[in-house]
């Protein structure tokens, strides 16, 4: 089990960026197909230089407390950064999870993928002119003995 310190407790007591953004520019969903857990990330983004910047971010979780803590930390890191930096953050998060037991990794992976879906959805909406809400399914499983083989991408 994750060791709990005062910083983690502070996130549990008051998860940062928890809630939704009405009329968000983009909504991305991370889903655990095994148990139905979901994380929904809302972003507002603005053009900055040759990229976009996440101006505002919020998330909701139909999931366990560990996922809520991961959402609080990851969205904090993503607020105010460019898409490129947010992608680095996602890649770093997913990389760090490679050595973590699957049942623990799933909680952070689902948040990282929801953020990825929000960014990709934003860009696809821009390209197609039609609002896209993407759902990315996690690879890790909350049960250590069962694994999903592929990241699936669905359009809502």
């Amino acid at each position: 089990m994750v060791q709990i310190d005062s910083e983690l407790i502070a996130h549990m007591q008051n998860p940062h960026n928890y809630g939704r953004i009405e009329n968000a520019d983009s909504i991305g969903i991370g889903k655990n197909p095994q148990n139905g857990e979901e994380v929904i990330v809302y972003i507002n983004a603005v053009k900055k230089d040759n990229d976009f910047m996440i101006e505002d971010i919020a998330f909701e979780a139909i999931a366990c407390m560990t996922t809520v803590v991961a959402g609080s930390i990851i969205t904090n890191e993503a607020k105010g950064v460019s898409f490129e930096m947010a992608r680095d953050l996602i890649a770093t998060t997913l990389g760090l999870l490679e050595n973590v037991p699957p049942e623990e990794a799933a909680c952070s992976e689902i948040v990282a993928l929801a953020l990825q879906a929000a960014i990709d959805g934003f860009l696809e909406t821009l390209k197609s002119g039609k609002k896209q809400t993407l759902i990315y399914k996690i690879k890790q499983s909350c049960s250590p003995n069962k694994e999903f083989n592929a990241v699936e991408k669905d359009e809502k």
Partner: peptide, 13 residues
């Protein structure tokens, strides 16, 4: 010493 307000519930629940 760890009191916190439960988070908002998603309406699908």
């Amino acid at each position: 010493g760890i009191l916190g307000v439960p988070r908002v519930i998603h309406k699908s629940l």
